[in-house]
Design a protein around this nucleic acid. Structure first.
Length: 410
DNA sequence: AATCCACTGGAAAATACGGGCC
DNA sequence: GGCCCGTATTTTCCAGTGGATT
C-alpha cells in the first residue's frame, strides 16, 4: 500500500478487462434491480390494476389511495415506477398536471423528513433540521396547492415510517382537506402483511381504498424474467441456459426474490469476466452466490459504527479464546469494558450494549437466544453465525481493532 | 412451592449536536 | 448570542421473568 504506480501501469491495468468485458455485458445496468424495465413478465395483472386505479388522473381527478403488499423482490417498486412513468407521459399528452414523488421510508423515516422531502420534490429547499414540523407541513400544503395539480406520493417500505412516526401518515391521509386546488394520493408499499392491522382505523380505511397483492415469483417465472433481462444485458450466446436455470432456482428458494436472481446472474457475469471466460454457466452462478454472501457480511461489518465493532470484537475474542462456541451478556460486557478502556473510547452502559447486541443479531452476524439458567439468572446466549475466520479477516481491516486481536494472539 | 439470580427490555430523561430565527 | 425546534444517541431507572435450586 502507498506505493507509487506510474501512469503507464494504470493505463494497462484495465486493458485486459476491456478485452473481455466487451464480450460479456451488453448493458450491465439492465441487470441491476434498480433498473425499471418496460415490460415486467408475470406482473401483468398488477400492472393492469394499478393502471386502472390511477387512470382518473388523466381526466384531472385524483385517484384512490393504493396499498401494495408483497415480499422483497416481487416487483412492487418496479411495477409502480413503470406505471407512473407511463402515466406521466400520458398526462403530458393530455395536458393533465401530474406530479409524483417517490420516498423510501427506510431512509426517510420521520414526519419531518417526509415533508422536507416532499417539499424538495416540488422545488422547495428545506433545511435538514431547524424548523418546526408544522411549518414544514404548512409550507408544503401551500406550495402544493399553488401548483394546481394531482400529486402522487409513493411511500416505499411504509411500515418503517409507522414505527417512528405514524402522524406523518395521518397527516398525509388528511391533507386533501387542507388543499383546495390540488389533490394528493398515496401509494403505500410494504412487505409486512400484518402492517395494515397495526394501523389506526381512520388511516387504514383511507389508505386501503385499493389493494394490490404481489405474490412471490415461482422458479419458472424467475426464469422468464432472467431470460428477458439477459437478452438485453448480456451479449448474445454468453449466458448458458444452465446458469439461468440455477439462478432462478436459488432465488426461488429465497421466497422468489427477483432481486436476488438478478444479482446472481450479474455477479456470475462479473466472475466470468474476471476469469477471462466468455460464457456464463451454473458454475459461475454458484461462485456468485458465495461472493454475494461474503460481500454482504463484509460490507455490513466494515460499515458498523466503532462501538458496535468493539462489541463484535469482544464476542469474537470471547468465542475464539474460550473453547465454548457461545458467550453471555455479562461475560461479554466485562471484556467489552476492558477493550473500550484500552482503545480509549467511551464506555457504554450494559443496557446500551444489550441494544447493540440486538442490532448485530438483526444484521444476521450473530445468533441470540434468551435462556434462563435458573438460580444463576436469565441472560442471552450469543454465538456467531458467520465463520470465525471471515469475521477476523474483516475486523482486522480496522486498525484500532486489529491491534487488539493481534495482541491477544501473542 | 417459594426463592432469587442476572439479566431483559420498555420508558423516560439526559446529552450532544445542527440549524433557523430574531 | 440566546432561544427554539428538530434528530440521534446514550443513560438512568426499573418492573418483569424462566426456571434451577432450595
Amino acid at each position: 500500500m502507498g506505493e507509487e504506480i506510474s501512469d503507464k501501469t494504470i493505463d494497462n491495468i484495465f486493458d485486459r478487462y476491456i478485452n473481455t468485458s466487451g464480450l460479456i455485458f451488453e448493458n450491465r445496468e439492465v441487470l441491476r434491480h434498480t433498473y425499471v424495465p418496460e415490460r415486467l413478465p408475470h406482473r401483468e395483472k398488477q400492472y393492469e390494476s394499478l393502471a386502472a386505479i390511477l387512470a382518473p388522473t388523466l381526466v384531472g381527478e385524483s385517484p384512490s389511495n393504493v396499498f401494495e403488499y408483497g415480499q422483497t423482490g416481487t416487483g412492487k417498486t418496479a411495477v409502480t415506477k413503470a406505471v407512473l412513468n407511463i402515466l406521466k407521459n400520458k398526462c403530458q399528452e393530455v395536458n393533465s398536471n401530474l406530479k409524483t414523488c417517490y420516498l423510501n421510508c427506510q431512509i426517510v423515516d420521520t414526519t419531518y423528513r417526509v415533508f422536507a422531502n416532499l417539499n424538495e420534490s416540488i422545488g422547495l429547499q428545506i433545511p435538514v433540521t431547524g424548523l418546526p414540523t408544522e411549518v414544514v407541513y404548512s409550507r408544503f400544503v401551500e406550495a402544493l396547492d399553488a401548483l394546481n395539480c394531482i400529486f402522487i406520493v409513493v411511500l416505499d417500505e411504509i411500515d418503517m415510517l409507522l414505527r417512528k412516526s405514524w402522524d406523518a401518515l395521518y397527516n398525509l391521509t388528511r391533507i386533501n382537506s387542507d388543499l383546495s386546488k390540488s389533490k394528493l394520493s398515496i401509494i403505500g408499499i410494504t412487505n409486512n402483511v400484518k402492517f395494515k392491522e397495526s394501523l389506526d382505523p381512520r388511516v387504514r380505511s383511507s389508505l386501503g381504498e385499493e389493494e394490490i397483492v404481489f405474490s412471490p415469483y415461482l422458479a419458472p417465472q424467475l426464469k422468464d424474467i432472467l431470460e428477458d433481462r439477459c437478452d438485453i444485458g448480456f451479449k448474445p450466446e454468453v449466458v448458458d441456459p444452465s446458469a439461468i436455470h440455477i439462478a432462478a432456482a436459488f432465488a426461488a428458494q429465497e421466497h422468489g426474490d427477483a432481486r436476488r436472481a438478478l444479482d446472481l446472474i450479474r455477479v456470475a457475469g462479473e466472475v466470468a469476466e474476471r476469469n477471462g471466460i466468455t460464457i456464463v454457466t451454473d458454475e459461475q452462478v454458484r461462485q456468485a452466490r458465495q461472493i454475494i454472501e461474503r460481500n454482504t457480511v463484509a460490507e455490513v461489518i466494515t460499515t458498523l459504527p466503532i462501538q458496535t465493532k468493539v462489541v463484535l470484537t469482544s464476542i469474537f475474542e470471547q468465542i475464539s479464546n474460550h473453547k465454548s462456541h457461545n458467550t453471555t451478556t455479562g461475560e461479554l460486557y466485562e471484556l467489552y469494558s476492558d477493550i473500550s478502556k484500552e482503545l480509549m473510547i467511551d464506555q457504554l452502559t450494559q443496557r446500551r450494549i444489550s441494544d447493540l447486541i440486538n442490532e448485530l443479531e438483526m444484521l444476521g452476524i450473530i445468533n441470540c437466544r434468551v435462556v434462563s439458567k435458573g438460580r444463576y439468572g436469565r441472560t442471552k446466549e450469543i454465538s456467531l453465525s458467520v465463520p470465525l475466520r471471515e469475521i477476523k479477516e474483516v475486523l482486522s481491516n480496522d486498525y484500532r481493532i486489529s491491534e487488539i486481536i493481534d495482541r491477544k494472539r501473542k
